[in-house]
């Protein structure tokens, strides 16, 4: 297993004017060598990751910390291969499991069990593996008869249980988890923590983004402090947390 990013930059375009996403304005600007459709069509970008280089060793347990908007989620999504860097290289060798964006992509009119099957397919499962994973996730979610109800009738906590259950039902070499443990009631949080411990035991490498220091202490040995799209510090977890808290005042 190997995961590394080299000089990776991710910049999101910020769209303020409709002209920025208009094919006619873009064509007019190109054909007039920039003299037409000038105002409002210049694109601005937000640097989410700025020349980030990180080498994740096999068996690493990394906790990502940082303020909101510091680049933690973008880093995880780039590692997962969801985001293509604008520059730099991503190297990965091994299977990736991710718990990102819980609830995103669910089909509201489909039942919980149908959504679980669909997500399991997205994770590459089929046949007996799919069946076992869905059973396991159904047991974990404790949704019982509600699993046959359309997802649009679920509360946010129920949705989180469903998605977390299926997203963590498969073993992967590298597990990427984004700020999901705080979702739901105390009973769910306890179960989620136990399940992540199980994942950590099975997976070679785990990277978790969280604001909860107790969660990071539970699972991680190393810490990465993200700040304004860059890695400010990477070291032992306690050392990084101490530096982060000191800076935060």
């Amino acid at each position: 297993m190997k995961l590394s990013l080299h000089q990776v930059t991710v910049a999101y375009p910020v769209n303020i004017s409709a002209r920025q996403q208009s094919i006619f304005a873009t064509a007019a600007k190109a054909m007039s060598f920039g003299s037409f459709a000038k105002s409002g069509s210049n694109q601005t970008y937000v640097l989410a990751l700025n020349q980030v280089t990180i080498d994740v060793k096999e068996g690493a347990r990394i906790g990502l910390i940082g303020r909101n908007g510091s680049g933690k989620s973008t880093l995880l999504r780039t590692m997962a291969g969801i985001i293509t860097p604008r520059s730099g290289k991503r190297f990965i060798n091994g299977s990736v499991g991710c718990v990102l964006n819980l609830g995103s992509g669910l089909e509201a009119d489909k039942s919980g069990i149908e959504n679980m099957k669909m997500i399991a397919r997205f994770y590459g499962m089929e046949g007996a593996e799919l069946k076992n994973a869905v059973e396991d996730a159904a047991n974990f979610s404790e949704l019982g008869p509600y699993l046959d109800f359309p997802v649009r009738t679920y509360s946010s906590g129920m949705t989180a249980r469903l998605c977390f259950g299926i997203a963590t039902a498969r073993h992967a070499d590298i597990m990427l988890i984004d700020e999901v443990i705080g979702t739901g009631d105390a009973h769910f949080v306890a179960k989620a923590v136990a399940r992540i411990k199980d994942i950590c035991a099975k997976s070679g490498t785990v990277i978790i983004a969280s604001h909860a220091e107790s969660v990071l202490h539970d699972f991680c040995t190393q810490g990465v402090w993200m700040d304004s799209g860059t890695i400010k510090k990477m070291d032992e977890l306690d050392t990084v947390l101490h530096a982060y808290n000191a800076a935060a005042g």
């Binding site: 999504r77 969801i82 964006n101 992509g105 669910l106 994770y123």
Partner: peptide, 11 residues
Amino acid sequence: RSKGYIESYPL
């Protein structure tokens, strides 16, 4: 239309 899937799963 597939935005939710694309942003959540590395497919």
